[in-house]
């Protein structure tokens, strides 16, 4: 029948009639190896052996889009799916550890994430679509390192750390040092992200999340803001982190906000001034998702809204 003929011959350069039968991905794409090791130890050994020739595969919702657009070539895949423990969310006394294969859907549904990190929880719910949230993972979002990656500003606002493992051991890198540019991070080609570690926020911590894009679903953010504020018993601000995505080459924290607001009560802050500060300190570009000017205007307004939201929550 048709399919066997299509399989054996009729590939490139075939004449019109058989064209629809002739596309076979393996004829055009380079990945010929597939590993799905059952331990992290085995995984890093395989990775070490292949140097940069393997791509580490989590959910694939970014990696495979780029692969089939031929933005890179690769000899094969190292799929993490069979490694136990990488899909867990574990609560410790002082921190939560999230496995890199935890999906956006799982972050959205997890009671622990909802309770301790509502900003991360809401950011995960805003990613893509049900189909993307079911496959896309927190580890993938981090390693893809898009300036617009929706989970990155929240992870920064909660002061996350990333554990990286290789055959030579492991290291823990704070989120603030991890991203070096658009789609660039300090991870080496022989390392695997094995844990996302976030300190427990403690009582009287409030957060606000805002994602702005041209539509609700399946949109790459034009700008995101994750604001997390910690108060002491006297309702004085102990710590405040204003982190933004899609406004600079990497997700950024506007540290001046902390300098300006720490030690004060929220009702004594000048929200417009802090909004202006955020707008000044980001370094957005013009692109198809918005102009730099637009992003500065929006950054100012969403910062003001976020402060108002937190002031309201803290007053309850």
């Amino acid at each position: 029948m048709k399919e066997s003929a299509a399989r054996s011959g009729n590939r490139q350069g075939t004449s019109g009639g058989d064209f629809k039968d002739c596309f076979r991905p393996e004829d055009y794409f380079t990945a010929s190896k597939y590993f799905a090791p059952e331990s992290l130890k085995e995984a890093v050994e395989i990775l070490e052996g292949y140097g940069g020739d393997l791509k580490v595969l989590a959910g694939g919702t970014d990696l495979l889009v780029e692969y089939y657009e031929r933005l890179y070539e690769v000899k094969g895949w190292l799929d993490l799916k069979n490694i136990p423990g990488l899909k867990e969310i574990k609560v410790f006394e002082d921190r939560i550890e999230i496995g890199p294969l935890v999906t956006h859907t799982e972050l959205e549904k997890s009671e622990n994430i909802k309770e301790y990190y509502p900003v991360l929880n809401r950011a995960a719910a805003d990613v893509g679509s049900p189909q993307i949230r079911n496959r896309g993972t927190i580890g993938g979002n981090i390693i893809t390192a898009s300036p617009a990656g929706d989970l990155l500003a929240p992870l920064m606002a909660y002061d996350a750390e990333f554990k990286l493992v290789s055959t030579r051991g492991e290291r823990i890198v704070p989120v603030g040092q991890f991203f070096t540019g658009p789609k660039r991070t300090i991870i080496s080609s022989n390392e695997i992200l094995s844990r996302i570690i976030i300190p427990l926020p403690g009582e009287r911590t409030y957060g606000s999340w805002c994602k702005v894009g041209k539509r609700k679903a399946l949109i790459i953010s034009s700008i995101t803001l994750a604001l997390v504020v910690k108060f002491n018993k006297e309702r004085v601000i102990k710590d405040i982190r204003a982190c933004l995505g899609a406004v600079a080459p990497t997700p950024v924290e506007i540290k001046e906000v902390r300098k300006r607001a720490r030690g004060k009560r929220i009702e004594d802050l000048n929200f417009s001034e802090l909004g202006e500060l955020v707008a000044e300190r980001i370094s957005p570009i013009d692109d198809i998702r918005g102009t730099a000017e637009y992003r500065r205007d929006v950054a100012r307004e969403i910062m003001i809204n976020a402060l108002e939201e937190i002031a309201e929550k803290a007053a309850e």
Partner: peptide, 9 residues
């Protein structure tokens, strides 16, 4: 789970 089969190897 609902998935996009174009993004699953």
């Amino acid at each position: 789970e609902l998935v996009a089969s174009c993004l699953v190897l």
